[in-house]
Write a protein that binds this DNA or RNA. Structure first.
Lengths: 252, 252
DNA sequence: CTAATAGTGTCTCTAAGACAGTATTCC
DNA sequence: GGAATACTGTCTTAGAGACACTATTAG
């Protein structure tokens, strides 16, 4: 048979008439630690990428959706049971991206407060949280095209931080305004004015709800910060806009 | 063999140990005609979607990238030889999305000034430009999950119109400000003030460059509009921001 | 002439941003 | 007390938006 105009096989198709692929799902798990954006990477003992780091991932199964496959991979490799912010980044299918076989991978972005216990697998030489800056500047050898995927994921996180309520996924159920501000500062690489940040959040109801409790001050002291929980408005967007003229991080 | 922790087959893998898929590429071609956003759809004579409309698309081949596959499909079905704005939307792999076989499709968005001659294929009962509003409100029966893909494409276009220089892809090499404004109005479904629109574009150099020529007025008369060409700044973004409080289209 | 479209000038109001000053903690 | 962090109040300014007005065409 020949391929039809649409490239799809008609009703009585012959499976040998079109190329077949393995389809995998890779997950970029981002979190904030020490005021810096971090990504979860695993190290594998397998050729031809022995010793290099890779994103966690695995095969899609025929009877699950892509979203379900990503959620399953996340559950299998971390102690994260439920990641509401698991979102698709895109598909990567360059020929030769996996030298062993014909693989199209679909990348996902997950944003979590903490990674928790990392589930050690049989073939994993290790797994670690790595600074995104380090992973992207070439200091770390990344397998496949995972460097490109990671770069795309970070760019997506920067956009979503402004367009969606992604920010609260980085913090716990209760948080201080300084913690929330640190999320924006780490992902965007900027410094935000604490006073204006607060004002944007309390200008309208729905962003933050006071709990009445206070956080413990750090070792250097300071006034104890109020603890808030997230309001309903995060379902629709973010109260903080990305600064047009980015103030360098650390500048004042 | 068993699947490894990463779900990938190790060096001496057995191809029968993981599920295989057909990978297709579908292209959402958007254009503006008559002040309305339109999409290119094809009608097919094949079961089980006989009589329904679908996005143009076809199989990815092993030795091309996904981007190349999308560009090839676009060339094969329209007279568009080169679409600089061909961008990936995402992957769609729900089980059963194609009842005939196991298919993961990767959707692309192309924005063009005009579709030109539509290349008729052997199995295509027809091809047409259809209003996006009509295609999405259920008036038209769309095959597979192409309704969802189209909805995602339109949402992406709305975002990219603000974040990137997508707008000039909708117009020709020279254009009037009214034409350019119509792009923003059609995609966002809003009415923009012509005066403020002009001001945003001439506030900085780099957005529009006067050609010295003037367009012919329409049948209703009016002052002939200056013809401009696009400046360099469109590579980095858009001078027009999406209105926060959307004025209804047609309101004044 | 009127209707229609292109283009100019100007006013108002909001929100971003800068920053001085106060409150409460640790040392 | 001083240093550090949390929080409040206020001023300035850039930009979005509204809209009156002028210019040039078709009929």
């Amino acid at each position: 048979m020949t391929l039809t105009r649409h490239g799809r096989a008609p009703a009585g198709y012959d499976p040998s008439a079109f190329p077949s692929f393995a389809v995998t799902v890779d997950v970029v798990v981002l979190t904030i630690e020490g005021g810096r954006l971090q990504v979860l990477l695993v190290q594998r003992g397998l050729e031809p990428f022995q010793g290099s780091w890779a994103l966690p991932g695995g095969f899609k199964r025929p009877y699950e959706t892509l979203d379900e496959a990503a959620a399953r991979e996340l559950r299998e490799e971390t102690s994260i049971q439920d990641a509401p912010t698991l979102r698709q980044l895109g598909a990567y299918g360059d020929p030769g991206r996996d030298p062993r076989m014909n693989v199209v991978t679909v990348a996902y972005l997950a944003v979590v407060r903490e990674v928790g216990e990392i589930v050690a697998g049989s073939d994993a030489a290790g797994a670690a949280l790595v600074s995104v800056a380090e992973a992207l500047d070439g200091a770390l050898e990344l397998a496949f095209d995972h460097g490109r995927i990671l770069a795309d994921a970070v760019e997506r996180a920067r956009v979503d931080l402004e367009q969606t309520g992604l920010a609260i996924s980085f913090v716990g159920t209760t948080f201080t305004l300084a913690e929330l501000r640190a999320v924006y500062e780490a992902v965007w690489g900027v410094t935000l004015d604490p006073a204006n940040f607060r004002r944007a959040l309390i200008a309208e109801d729905g962003w933050i709800v006071p709990t009445g409790k206070r956080a413990q001050p750090g070792p250097a002291g300071g006034k104890p910060a109020e603890l808030y929980k997230a309001g309903r408005s995060w379902a629709y967007g973010s109260p903080i806009r990305r600064p047009r003229r980015a103030r360098e991080k650390g500048a004042r």
